[in-house]
């Protein structure tokens, strides 16, 4: 058997998948040990148990000043901003995507504009958002929308355009109006694509969330890691990064499972990531 068509069993697949993670942890431990052998007060690579203790403290011991459990307050605030931003983007993407993908006149009107807007580096509009909306929640959510809506619009418009023309002709021969065609062919077929678009949009959404929180905020995951950066508190930063990664992964997997559950027909053929 050649290497390219080996069959991998479940046990070895799990083991192989865990290998890079284990290698990373091992390399970190060794590095941390070497640095602390030189200087026991080293802050750059704190030992794993220190990080675990700090993380546990932030999750369970109320903050002295505010009385909050910082990890959970930060997580809740960040997820609320992320969720609001991505949901608004999804709604915009659905509306504009269908108009561009389904209606030739809509495409002619809006496609060039969306293409142009999608090229604006979103972080450059952040000062404008701060000036217009102030430093509150609105400008952070708006940054996520500006950063994710254009790509999501384009991927949904493409999803509508990928529906075979035959299906529109067929449903017209079954007596459907334009509205009925949208409700019975276009929308049902792009729901799974909307979930894919949200999953893709979440990647930049996290970047803009953390950026906005780093620049102007008093809570949130991004705020916390940029705050403690001043004290070189790697024992907070590193677990927070891992925690953010875990949240992002869980959201992505959750959406994928949701899509499989709700739109079984879209997942019958082939494996997908």
């Amino acid at each position: 058997m050649s290497y390219s068509n080996q069959k991998i069993g479940l046990a070895s697949r799990v083991a192989l998948g865990a290998l890079p993670f284990a290698a990373l942890v091992a390399a970190y431990s060794v590095g941390s040990h070497i640095r602390r052998a030189d200087n026991p007060a080293d802050k750059l690579l704190p030992p794993l148990d220190d990080m675990a203790a700090t993380f546990w403290r932030m999750a369970t011991v109320p903050d002295q000043r505010s009385g909050d459990l910082l990890l959970w307050t930060d997580t809740f605030q960040s997820l609320a901003r992320l969720g609001a931003g991505v949901l608004i983007s999804a709604a915009i993407a659905l509306l504009v995507g269908v108009i561009i993908g389904y209606l030739p006149r809509g495409r002619a009107t809006l496609a060039p504009f969306v293409a142009a807007v999608s090229l604006i580096p979103p972080i450059t509009v952040l000062p404008i958002l701060f000036i217009v909306f102030g430093l509150g929640e609105t400008s952070k959510v708006a940054l996520i929308v500006v950063g994710t809506a254009p790509v999501m619009i384009r991927s949904l418009a493409q999803a509508v355009m990928d529906i075979p023309r035959e299906q529109f002709v067929k449903i017209a021969t079954l007596g459907a109006s334009t509205v009925q065609c949208v409700c019975r062919v276009v929308l049902p077929q792009i729901w799974p694509k909307l979930i894919t678009a949200i999953r893709l949009g979440l990647v930049p959404a996290w970047i803009f969330l953390i950026s906005a929180e780093a620049i102007a905020s008093t809570d949130g995951l991004g705020y916390r890691i940029f705050l403690v950066r001043r004290y070189l508190a790697m024992d907070v930063i590193l677990p927070y990064v891992a925690w953010i990664t875990l949240l992002a992964y869980a959201l992505d997997r959750g959406l994928q499972l949701l899509s499989r559950k709700l739109f079984r027909w879209a997942h019958l053929e082939g494996e997908s990531l």
């Binding site: 075979p164 035959e166 299906q167 067929k170 017209a172 021969t173 049902p188 027909w265």
Partner: peptide
């Protein structure tokens, strides 16, 4: 297209999500 003229294509004639 109107309902007085039905059609069957080689592919994509039925709706994959139904």
């Amino acid at each position: 297209p109107t309902p007085d003229r039905g059609v069957v294509f080689q592919r994509y004639s039925v709706f994959p999500h139904l």
